[in-house]
Amino acid sequence: MDKIIAGKNVTVTDEGFLKDFGQWDKDIADALAVENQIVLTPRHWEVITYIQNEFKNDVPLSIRKIGKSGIVDIKEFYQLFPVAPLKTATKIAGIPKPVSCI
């Protein structure tokens, strides 16, 4: 379905994930963060950049991988994105919802 985020018309899934990463930009990330009660700090951006790179390299994301990333540990990841961190972070980053259970 179509949705207007940060004044731009984008296509999203039922759960609000962008269908096309090409439509993502930083304004959209900020707007999606606000929707999820998060104010993005430089630490958030380091994590978002990391998961976008993993996505571009076709690496499947999981909580365990994030913990081993060297960018952020699991505890801080939950502090940055308190509710459903992997889902929320990938949504803000404009990439598909991870299918991992761990």
Binding site: I63, R64, I74, Y78
Partner: peptide, 15 residues
């Protein structure tokens, strides 16, 4: 990519 029991406990606690 399943962690062993000890690592899993660390993940659970950190989560």
């Amino acid at each position: 990519d399943m962690p062993d029991v000890r690592e899993f406990i660390e993940i659970l606690s950190a989560s």
